[in-house]
């Protein structure tokens, strides 16, 4: 009899767990559905290809798309070499010394710094101290600092996936450490490092707080001429349209359209990275 009650209770608990899990799935599904459904009706070629008018109440969001892409490229250009280089050091050179511990502590700390604090930091150092002003350069550098830990962690994981035997064989043939890395580690881990990093950078593309203080322009219906120019950016543009705009209640389609484009950009980057990774995982098997 005891087992019987136990079984009923077990079944109920299992059911409850499943319900909670799928409730979360449903909520996520609804968020995506809401943004996609409302955003899709606002989307058209003119919306993504033309300049905004009336403070963004009309026209398109072309400069914001371009601005975000510039920021993504700038962030990649700074953070990828630095992050991959750091990961190579940690995976291939560092032993359990104090220097290594310090670096790991720094990475963990950096990963926990709130994005708005990165914004303050970027404002203090890049915008004011370095004198870059609010610019693509200052924004990219700020975002790069923010994604650095993600890139290092992803890259290190990819490096550690390369079998130890390759390293031994390479060194035993008389390769120097760097030759070993260049010829026998990087070719097999680079794709993993880059895709892992893009996942992190995709998230940075959707961040608002760090660019709020370092780069984003409220309304700037032209394209930047240099890295010292300010740009509009999708996340900030959405924030402005949704909360700061005098006509906020009447331009819902504009807002949804912007949200959808931003979502597509971020998820697209992530999805692309995941697909590339699967492709390369199939290519290199050992």
């Amino acid at each position: 009899m005891k087992t019987k009650t136990n079984n009923t209770a077990d079944t109920l608990i299992l059911l409850a767990l499943r319900l909670i899990t799928y409730a979360i799935v449903l909520v996520i599904g609804y968020i995506l559905f809401d943004i996609v459904k409302n955003g899709a009706s606002a989307l058209n070629w003119q919306f993504v290809s033309s300049f905004p008018r009336r403070s963004g109440a009309a026209g398109g969001i072309f400069p914001a798309i371009v601005g975000t892409l510039y920021l993504v490229v700038g962030t990649i250009a700074v953070s990828l070499p630095l992050g991959i280089g750091g990961a190579i050091y940690l995976a291939e050179y560092a032993d359990q010394g104090r220097f290594n511990t310090t670096i790991r502590l720094a990475i963990v700390t950096l990963a926990g710094v709130p994005s708005i604090v990165f914004g303050l930091f970027g404002l203090g150092i890049f915008v004011l101290f370095c004198g870059f002003g609010p610019s693509i350069l200052a924004g990219s550098l700020t975002l790069a600092c923010m994604v650095l830990p993600t890139i290092i962690v992803a890259s290190e994981e990819s490096l550690r996936a390369v079998p130890k035997g390759f390293r031994d064989a390479s060194l035993a043939l008389g390769a120097t450490k760097w030759e070993m890395i260049r010829t026998n580690i990087l070719p097999y881990s680079l794709s993993g490092m880059i895709t892992g990093s893009i996942l992190g950078i995709g998230r940075a593309a959707g961040e608002t707080a760090p660019i709020l203080l370092t780069v984003a322009a409220f309304f700037l219906p032209r394209l930047p001429k240099s890295i010292f120019d300010q740009v509009m950016a999708l996340p900030y543009h959405l924030y402005i349209l949704a909360t700061q705009h005098p006509e906020a209640d009447r331009i819902r389609p504009m807002q949804y359209g912007t949200a959808l484009i931003l979502l597509l950009l971020v998820l697209g980057l992530s999805l692309g990275a995941i697909l590339i990774r699967t492709h390369f995982r199939k290519k290199f098997r050992w």
């Binding site: 079998p163 035997g165 390759f166 031994d168 064989a169 390479s170 060194l171 035993a172 043939l173 008389g174 390769a175 120097t176 010829t183 026998n184 097999y188 290199f284 098997r285 050992w286």
Partner: peptide
């Protein structure tokens, strides 16, 4: 580097590089 040119090594677990046979030997 010079030492390891003089003294070759073969490991317990065969560890060819995921390259062509030619490139392995020419490495």
């Amino acid at each position: 580097v010079e030492l390891r040119k003089e003294v070759g090594m073969v490991f317990q677990k065969s560890n060819p590089f995921p390259k062509s046979i030619f490139d392995n030997v020419a490495y």
